[in-house]
Write a protein that binds this DNA or RNA. Structure first.
Lengths: 114, 114
DNA sequence: CCGAATCCAATTAGATACTG
DNA sequence: CAGTATCTAATTGGATTCGG
């Protein structure tokens, strides 16, 4: 197993990285500023729990897209931010956003017909 | 349930559409030309079966990104191609490809250090 | 050739309780 | 505040078989 295209094909590699259910949304939230754990949780749709968020953040960190910075404080403070390669991912986010809006408009238009 | 952001937020919407394991790769393959079912299967990594491909294609078709065209022949011939909104998705694929290559290089460089 | 149906295995998310 | 651990439920993929 794992005679994978990961690390070879850019499409397969990216698909793998984005495989979580909230990954794109998380990256979008971190686009402009570092955000703390609980603040991320608040900004995400209400459905997800902190256990899920924790896992996804860990995955993105292992993929190298985000950086976890822990402040030595009581109470604890942890900030997540984009890494260098994560910053570069913004170009994908931008085109994704443009297309996403187009898609939504397109779908509404189709529904209106039916 | 399903007080979803699908159809509202471009990121959540796109994440949902791309949720399959091979979706991005399939869209990439269809980027330039219509391709028949078995030809798609051949071009995809050997791991996947035709049942899986069939499901993913159906999903992408239901999402409106691709079009299934069936020729009235014996033996059957079915071609898949990008729809109008699927064509527009190429801009995402392009940035994804660029970033994917950067990411792969970046990872190799990191490994080399360790 | 294309694909639906079924079954099973693997993965992932959600809920909850617990910790420093 | 920011997690981990554990369990369960849901989703998805892979393998196989069957059908027009």
């Amino acid at each position: 197993m794992k005679k994978d295209l990961f690390g070879i094909c850019p499409y397969a590699t990216t698909q793998k990285i984005l495989s979580g259910k909230w990954t794109i949304y998380i990256l979008y939230l971190l686009k402009d500023e570092p955000i703390r754990f609980n603040e991320l949780l608040r900004r995400l749709p209400g459905e997800m729990t902190h256990a899920t968020l924790s896992r996804q953040l860990k995955g993105l960190e292992e993929s190298g897209l985000i950086i976890r910075r822990e402040y030595e404080q009581v109470p604890p403070k942890v900030e997540y931010s984009l890494s260098a390669i994560g910053e570069r991912f913004k170009m994908v986010l931008d085109s994704l956003e443009i297309w996403g809006f187009e898609y939504i408009e397109h779908m509404k238009a189709s529904e209106a017909v039916s």
